[in-house]
Amino acid sequence: MALSKKDVKHIAKLARLGLSGKEKKKYLKDLGGILDYMEMLNEVDTKNVEPLALVTGLKNVLRKDENFHQLDIEKVKQIISQAAEREDNFIKTKPVLENK
């Protein structure tokens, strides 16, 4: 499947990955080569084959709906302290919705 420069730009945006112009060229070449290799899967007849994700056959593993974590304020502080921007015990971000 031929990949275009436009595709690379689109994928990078979907992946929230900043790319320089040089990298866009590089990934165009790399991904193209790898995807060509993947084409060999089309040789395999997979008609009526169920896709497999979990090999152990476990399904819908449930637990009781109860909170087994104790709220530990020191732990909360430790976790929040890892964020680049914060205020009190909250993580701060730039606005999700912007005024245009």
């Binding site: 499947m1 990949l3 595709d7 690379v8 689109h10 994928i11 990078a12 979907l14 992946a15 990955l17 990934y27 991904l31 790898i34 995807l35 993947m38 899967l41 089309n42 395999v44 997979t46 084959v49 169920e50 896709p51 497999l52 994700a53």
Partner: peptide, 24 residues
């Protein structure tokens, strides 16, 4: 990049589903 492409709209069946069938 590779994973995002393979999972993006229009390519899921050609790549991810096919790969999982081969996995089976």
């Amino acid at each position: 990049m590779l994973g995002t492409y393979a999972l993006s709209a229009g390519y899921y069946n050609a790549y991810y589903k096919k790969a999982q069938q081969v996995r089976a």
